[in-house]
Design a protein around this nucleic acid. Sequence first.
DNA 1: AGATACAGTGCAAAAGATTGCAACGATGAA
DNA 2: TTCATCGTTGCAATCTTTTGCACTGTATCT
Lengths: 333, 333
Amino acid sequence: MLLTVTIKHVAKAAGVAVGTVSRVLAKNKTVNEEIRIRVEEAIQELGYQPNTLGRSLRLNKTDLIGLVIPDITNPFFAELAKHVEMLASSEGYSVLLANSHDDPAAEQQQVQALLGRLPRGLILVPVSESTIGDLVSGKNTVTVDRPLQGQTLVGVDNRRGGYLAADHLLSLGHRRIAYMSGPPTLDVARERREGFVGRIREFQQQHPSQPLAFQTVDGNFDYRAGEELGNRLLRQEHPPTAIATASDQQAIGLMRAAADVGLSIPNDLSIVGFDDIPLASLVLPRLTTIRQPLAEIARIALKAILSRSSTPHDCKLEPVLVERNSTRAWPGR
Amino acid sequence: MLLTVTIKHVAKAAGVAVGTVSRVLAKNKTVNEEIRIRVEEAIQELGYQPNTLGRSLRLNKTDLIGLVIPDITNPFFAELAKHVEMLASSEGYSVLLANSHDDPAAEQQQVQALLGRLPRGLILVPVSESTIGDLVSGKNTVTVDRPLQGQTLVGVDNRRGGYLAADHLLSLGHRRIAYMSGPPTLDVARERREGFVGRIREFQQQHPSQPLAFQTVDGNFDYRAGEELGNRLLRQEHPPTAIATASDQQAIGLMRAAADVGLSIPNDLSIVGFDDIPLASLVLPRLTTIRQPLAEIARIALKAILSRSSTPHDCKLEPVLVERNSTRAWPGR
DNA sequence: AGATACAGTGCAAAAGATTGCAACGATGAA
DNA sequence: TTCATCGTTGCAATCTTTTGCACTGTATCT
């Protein structure tokens, strides 16, 4: 165990008091140029690195950002984590990662453990609206993607996203449409569906004479749910000609189901996803989807944490439609 | 800002000295039963939680595990992160996440930043063999997937993995075979290829009369490389009937290229991947691949960290062939 | 010249927890 | 009675850093 060099050693080497070294480190200008140089030389010479723990204890705050997400394996959250980590580390912060596995009890435990580390702030994708509410209240928290009572939420305008998807399919001439939603317990899922259904209703009112079949199914956000719900939808007597989903993972699962049933995309079936994960542009055919500006979301969330604006102020970003090859105009056979 | 309750408050509430409270917390048995109960009640009552910083400063060690990976967006590393996080948090540790983006300079910076936090240990997927070598030497580090001079490596027997893939394709009757390798700078990639080539050569010696065409290409591990290399391989005059890749991501990119060329899998082309990421069993067709026991890898890596066995001792696990629907016997047209 | 201001520096007190050492009271032995 | 022992507990030092306060010496003003 090599013994570490502390601020005391630097002070002795430079022939000054520890306080002075500290002031040099803090770039405090009330320190003589000559002494500053002497101290900096000593720091160089000894290879001194400030002890984060001592500083944190004294200041009662750390350079840690807590990030609690349901599942790092989900490409959407992985992307979020990547951006948060990049931005945080460029500002000198490190990120504490915690998985909640979509389990309220685990989430509560994780949040508690993280809070015990006195992080500068918490970026949270909550799974349970109730369990952790008071745990994080007043704790410099920002919520991403999903809301939590009394906390700043930064995310996308989900209604608008749903609206865009519906509008896209309608304008392509589809008149047998289905919407594959997420878990009905989640606000995000409900909002996306409401936006989608809203556009459908709007169209029906504007064109009351046009026949329009529409249905909705619920499930999880993952691949498997996409496949299962897809099978259910496509094996009906009159299957839809277009399906919008609440996540790209669902959409990719759905593509699998479509292939099993023998449908070709986009010829027999148009699909539009949600999120625009990296894989979306790599599946075959490339997936038309509603893009969430994730880099921007991460940036704003982190800024909110670091600026400590105690008043919660939600931030809803604009989703955008990314047209690729999984949707096509319906010839109207 | 609500003021936090410290060990001092507990001591006063229980009418004992702080040292005694500390001993109760440490489950030190040299403390009277009666007093222990009184202290524990005070802890409950006040909702006291020990300050991690004070403890860490005193003990000069933390409950943090540093995890440095090239890219959290890569499903393989995401899966690794998930397992590490699960195991670590179940032992009371938190994980510090850092992305190196496959960039030696960034990696060096990240490792340095993490080490400054005095983690209990570092789990590292190194991108550069040279830059961080002396940075982490003697620092309780475990390397996963890729080796680093003088550090314990836990990973899969890559040669064996390559061997299994080649053996599978040969036994299916394929005689025009290609291997899509990873970056030749990476030991992992070289070993997998050597294993693969080794089995090919072995077969040639055993059956010198049988015609056997074999070629190799190099590239990155990601989807895009898979697609590009795939196009190059498949657009030859006599394309291979079977291709093994060095990663599932490559394999999935390759599937895309195959579809572009109009080849059906597994009828016209057999593909075997490497890693067995979750997506592998969800693509169409489901991907035959060489599975890495990632949960086991994470478990061993963490155990090595926590047991602080200072002598580096590599651990090579057995990869296993997972047969799914992307490979098929070659009829020998 | 004497008083005042001021920049620059040292000193010591925090911050919260752990732990070696001393002290204490009770007991038993000499 | 005195001494040693044992099991517990309190005291105080320690880990490293920051920062308010006091102090020094110089410069400026009256």
